[in-house]
Design a protein around this nucleic acid. Structure first.
Length: 595
DNA sequence: TGATGGGACTCAGAAACATAAGT
DNA sequence: AACTTATGTTTCTGAGTCCCATC
């Protein structure tokens, strides 16, 4: 399968995928699924993993004892007393009213501040706090500038603190947080992830979220459920006179505390352990293990869906085509979404306007996916798939689902029949592993560690592109590019100068003959000049590479794939065989210990 | 049998922050 | 040595996936 890039708004120019998908890994990893356990540890870059199944764990019980200290609440609001203007006049606000006004004022230089939905939602919620009789009734007459300026000066004050002061306040904070940072799971000290309760603020939904700007109210102890071992002391509620909503002892879950999301009361926010904890590490490992297992099944899975491309059963046909897309393009499953969320789609929820059929057999995808990130890609597909998509779209009006006989439940149920535990998202992990492994094996050469690290970054980049991990162009990008260009110009001038000097000397030398004395009298011998010349040359090349690399990665977010998709076992094995120190990367250093 | 909704977990990019590199 | 700036890391919290119970 060839994916022809049509040049997206972002992440353009480098989409491609190997048609030989599973070759490199399959060749070395499991030949047959069950017996491959011992066989696959032999190869250099294959991965050592002993699936040490914890016999204790029936899959439901997550811990036997759990001890922790609960959560940290944000400090109460401290009024600043700076008066905003209404219709040109300063207005008095209660601390509660001022708090919300400040939340808005502070967002002045974000995109949100100029979005209608955001403003409307904010103003509606604020007016509830202002009360019906308050002078403030029209947003247009509000002037938040005084508060914004107060905020700027506060920021400046913070910046002006000496590094000792900064360090001191940092240490004080971490001392306060210390007891909340750790939990004991079955007696083992583990890091807690987000022990801080989310502070109140204005909701910052991604994309065109209908609820953006709504007030996210303050969370109080009476909102919070604590989950802790039966034996463990219940954390003291840190706010005097208040108490927890509930204390549970549920060892089938891993969370330490939870509360209902104030924006969406049916959603729950959890306090979990950090990624470095063994509980998280274990499920991470299971994820990668499942992706590796898929290699043993992929051939038959592909045969299975290829057969169904022409099925008379429309549902079977849709499952086949959807699976094909998920396999080839690493699309997300695409759950159904609520009306009051941003309008985004995944595979199962693709709408007819998201896919364009380009004869003879190309499909152009254009839709907003998770986090409202645009997926824009033109792909050459098997003719049967092309025809099927055309048929699915035929006669449906805008907004209609391409896969109307399908949802993620049905799709996953079918995948489970093909391989135990298989779900749609496993294909993304699988794709990432294949890509990482293929590139590392194909492109790593004997060279410096830096050169090898560049190869790794290339692989990381390709995975990010396949997963469509994009980022906004960094604010400083243009200025950085300009600087690099200037640097290159400077160096080029220097190079030319040196070149001229050199040829002048060569001429002179010709005239004088190869007189050693004449040479030595000069401060710069031709040899020295030559050396300088090549130094400048390499610096130009280096700077140019650096520049191109930066431009190349300006819209690619490498972090997400590194953390969630790159199998640490592949990385660690590669580091070992190519003598790249693992501790060049903090993330893999941590995971190496964990895995 | 399938729709609906709740629950728990992974995955997501931005922003804040810390540190290293460059001047 | 003292800044400034680039880069790497952590925090934050929103947005998905997928499972299960219920009707």
């Amino acid at each position: 399968l060839k994916i022809i890039n049509a040049g997206g708004a972002k992440a353009d120019g480098h989409r491609h995928q190997d048609s030989d998908d599973e070759k490199p890994l399959a060749a070395r990893l499991g030949i047959n699924s069950a017996a491959s356990k011992t066989g696959d540890a032999s190869d250099s870059s294959s991965v050592e993993s002993e699936p040490k199944d914890e016999p204790e764990h029936d899959g439901r019980k997550k811990w036997s004892t759990l001890v922790h200290n609960g959560v940290v609440f944000p400090p109460p609001y401290k009024p600043h007393g700076v008066k905003m203007l209404y219709n040109g006049q300063p207005v008095d606000l209660t601390p509660e009213q001022e708090e919300v006004a400040t939340m808005f004022a502070v967002m002045k230089d974000t995109e949100y501040a100029s979005k209608e939905t955001f403003i409307n939602n904010f103003f509606t919620d604020w007016r509830k706090i202002l009360g019906k009789t308050h002078v403030i009734t029209k947003f247009e007459l509000c002037d938040f500038t005084p508060i914004y300026e107060w905020h700027l000066s506060e920021k400046e004050k913070k910046k002006q603190m000496t590094s000792e002061e900064k360090k001191a306040s940092r240490e004080e904070k971490s001392q306060q947080d210390e007891k909340f940072m750790w939990a004991f799971v079955d007696g083992v000290k583990e890091k807690v992830g987000n022990f801080r309760v989310e502070p109140p603020g204005l909701f910052r939904g991604r994309g065109e979220h209908p609820k953006m700007g709504r007030l996210k109210r303050r969370i109080r102890p009476s909102d919070i459920t604590i989950n802790i071992g039966e034996e463990a002391p219940v954390p003291v509620c840190p706010i005097p006179g208040e108490s927890w909503k509930e204390v549970k002892h549920d060892n089938t879950v891993t969370w330490l505390a939870c509360w209902n999301d104030p924006i969406n009361e049916k959603d729950i926010k959890y306090v979990f352990l950090a990624a470095s904890s063994s509980l998280k590490g274990q499920s991470d490992k299971e994820k990668y293990e499942k992706a590796r297992k898929l290699k043993d099944y992929i051939r038959s899975i592909r045969a299975n869906y290829t057969k169904d491309f022409r099925s008379k059963d429309q549902r079977k046909k849709q499952i086949a085509v959807a699976t094909y897309l998920i396999d080839k393009l690493a699309l997300r499953a695409g759950d159904e979404k609520d009306e009051d969320e941003a309008d985004t789609v995944g595979c199962c929820t693709l709408k007819v306007e998201n896919v364009t059929c380009l004869p003879p057999n190309k499909l152009q995808f254009d839709f907003l996916g998770k986090d409202s990130i645009r997926y824009y890609n033109t792909v050459e597909v098997e003719l049967a798939v092309y025809e099927a998509i055309k048929e699915f779209c035929a006669g449906k009006k805008k907004g209609g689902h391409v896969f109307d006989k399908l949802d993620t439940t049905k799709l996953n149920a079918h995948l489970k029949d093909l391989m135990p535990g298989l779900t749609a998202k496993v294909f993304r992990t699988y794709d990432a592993s294949i890509t990482l492994d293929t590139i590392l094996n194909k492109e790593t050469t004997d060279g410096t560690v830096d050169e090898k690290a560049k190869v790794y970054q290339r692989a990381n980049k390709e995975v990010a592109i396949i997963c469509n991990h994009q980022r906004a162009v960094p604010k400083s990008h243009d200025s950085q590019m300009n600087k690099l260009n200037e640097k290159i110009d400077e160096l080029t001038v220097e190079l030319e100068k040196a070149n001229k000097l050199l040829s002048k000397k060569a001429k002179k030398r010709k005239l004088v003959g190869s007189d050693g004395d004449a040479k030595r009298r000069r401060k710069l011998t031709p040899e020295m000049l030559q050396k300088k010349l090549s130094q400048v040359e390499t610096r130009i090349v280096e700077t140019d590479n650096h520049k191109n690399n930066k431009e190349d990665l300006k819209t690619v977010a490498l972090g997400t794939s590194k953390i969630n998709y790159l199998d640490p076992r592949i990385t660690v094995a590669w580091c070992k065989t190519h003598e790249v120190p693992i501790d060049r990367d903090k993330h893999f250093t941590v995971l190496n210990k964990l895995f």
